[in-house]
Design a binder for these strands. Structure first.
Lengths: 349, 349
DNA sequence: GATTCCAGTGGAACTGATTCCAAAAGCGTA
DNA sequence: TACGCTTTTGGAATCAGTTCCACTGGAATC
């Protein structure tokens, strides 16, 4: 059977040196004679030596490890970008990531945090899959923590979330820029949920209109539910109006997709007849639509990166209020926004 | 500043017992007097004791850890189901998962494997994001490994992949069952790639036709490229034929989505006029289409589960050829398959 | 009353690294 | 040749656990 893995002592014996010397070679410390270093290295090579990380960890106290915990059933394809962003930053700092999907189970969640702490993580990223308020395991207070795409009621953790208001504003501005004045907005959830993604995007929409001097018209707003069906229905509903909108801002790409079907059914073309901006940049959908959908990207990778970066660089243990960071949602230009019909264009024409 | 974390020795001293006793309590070993156990536990509670996993690992040699390595830029939302499946199985066995996205970079990949080995992983899952042949870092031979959704040329690793042929067959059978006889098939990639997903699904399509006694008709097959545009174009192309198909089997859901647009444009309704089956079960698309798309699900969660299960239970070190497992792609019935028009129905009617 | 037996316990040895101190070796200069 | 540096080296102590062996003391058996 496989022989026991060699330890630093085996290497020392085989190379005829002391363990200290082997350790020095391993860590590329100075003050090792070139000949000795070569000798030790060749012995390591020969015996197929691999250092045991756990031993180093226990002695130095450094685990070089971060925990990454996602909080609930992730029916979204978002998780991966978040993880990738976090991991990229972690790799730069020579750290690894332990990913756990708690899958909406509170016991699993608690257990996961305990496990991570026992494994000595230097910090934990707690990521939600959509922007909302969360209640986290109390054990998180034992270790540096950053919340991603979520926040606690009393803001007692650092947190990084998308800037929904600004996203909504910029989406609307893009449409105004092309001369549109009758711009419909379908929220990505009912407002009564209080979700920042629903409330904030609408808020941004209003801000942009106000700034452009376009009066807000209640009749152009619908409370959607985020899915394709909802987009389809509300699009038809808005199309039935006396003076239908020339542009649509949907709170999700999925709703925009549903709306595309509605437009196709009534013979309207995008962006010739109507312009559309989505939200989320689910590129599998946005890229696949014809024409491809212009949409606001959620800064998942950036949030993941920010979270790890904060864990790496922030001074922990001090008591000042933890930062609540908002990251912008960049617009992704594809092909669904066009000039407003001349008859409808405002003062710009 | 925060006081040093208490160790097992601190607990022993505080509780007035030996370290051995504390260890016994910690591991719920027998032969500890009830009073002692209670005393020790209360002290642990008081001092906020957390065992240090690394120390246990180093002594017992058990890391309770698996590595999960994805091999390239994962533009797909698939990764997450795979991870979830693997993690669910790992949790059952009280193991954790270290996830690394190598992102197509060979150096990162090598480095990642080395890191995982140094961290003492009990095994590594190497997952591709689409079914194809891969070349893996040689260091993987040092540790039990399972390949997911991929395989090596000489089959020297255990591997678990979707049963593409069977998936293609069952998708086609579903259509035949409803009386369709002119069934188009658009492959999810050009066949010259040799990808099992492209070649295999077509193969299954042919098998199903043969079994049903329906002659294979070259004119009903197109080599697609997987994306929505490709589906849109080939659908129009097929619709232009003298005797257009009554049913379509697309190698990806995205192509099916593109085709939906084509059907809408020419005024055909699904499933009344044409039936459609997709592949991949990208539910964000499949659920969002109207009607929702019937499609074949890739067994991602099942593959992840199988991989960890194999690592946990297979006898390692023996030399028999590693298993090459194929898992079925279950059909997900939604609403896009209907009865063939009477005029077109075969002997079944 | 002596002899087993065993549950309960303490603590030394060990795991594989790092760290640090003391000692050895090498080198230049007086 | 002796002296003082610096460089190089060996190895004990340490980290936080587990494991195992030896030792109690009380109950059961003879």
């Amino acid at each position: 059977m496989a022989v026991k893995k060699p330890s630093i002592h085996d290497i020392a014996k085989a190379a005829g040196v002391g363990v200290g010397t082997v350790s020095r070679v391993l860590n590329e410390r100075p003050n090792v004679a070139e000949a000795t270093r070569a000798k030790v290295e060749s012995v390591m090579e020969q015996l197929g030596y691999r250092p045991t990380f756990a031993a180093r960890h226990i002695r130095t106290g450094r685990s070089q490890l971060f925990g990454f915990l996602t909080d609930q059933v992730t029916t979204t394809p978002f998780a991966h970008d978040l993880i990738k962003g976090a991991q990229a930053r972690a790799r730069q700092a020579d750290r690894m990531l332990m990913v756990i999907d708690a899958d909406g189970d509170d016991r699993v969640r608690e257990q996961a945090v305990a496990n991570l702490i026992e494994r000595g993580v230097e910090g934990i990223v707690y990521a939600a899959m959509f922007h909302h308020e969360v209640h986290v395991p109390k054990a998180l207070h034992e270790v540096p923590t950053v919340l991603v795409d979520c926040f606690t009621p009393n803001r007692d953790f650092a947190s990084v979330v998308p800037d929904e208001v600004r996203g909504g504003r910029e989406a609307t501005e893009r449409l105004l820029e092309e001369g549109h004045r009758r711009i419909a907005m379908v929220t990505n959830d009912v407002l009564s949920t209080g979700y920042p993604a629903a409330v904030g995007r609408l808020e941004g929409y209003k801000e942009a209109l106000a700034e452009a001097g376009v009066p807000f018209d209640e009749a152009l707003v619908r409370e959607g539910s985020g899915n394709a069906d909802s987009g389809y229905r509300w699009a038809h509903d808005l199309l039935d109006a006396d003076d239908p909108p020339t542009a649509y801002f949907f709170g999700t790409d999925r709703m925009a997709m549903g709306a595309y079907f509605a437009f196709t059914e009534v013979g309207l073309s995008v962006p010739g007849d109507v312009s559309v901006v989505g939200f989320d940049d689910q590129h599998y959908i946005a890229d696949a639509l014809r024409p491809a959908l212009t949409t606001m990207a959620l800064p998942h990778a950036a949030m993941g990166r920010w979270a790890i970066d904060h864990l790496l660089t922030a001074p922990w243990g001090e008591d000042r209020p933890p930062p609540q960071r908002r990251l912008p949602c960049p617009i992704v230009e594809r092909g669904s926004v066009g000039r407003a019909p001349a008859s409808d264009a405002g003062e710009e024409s």
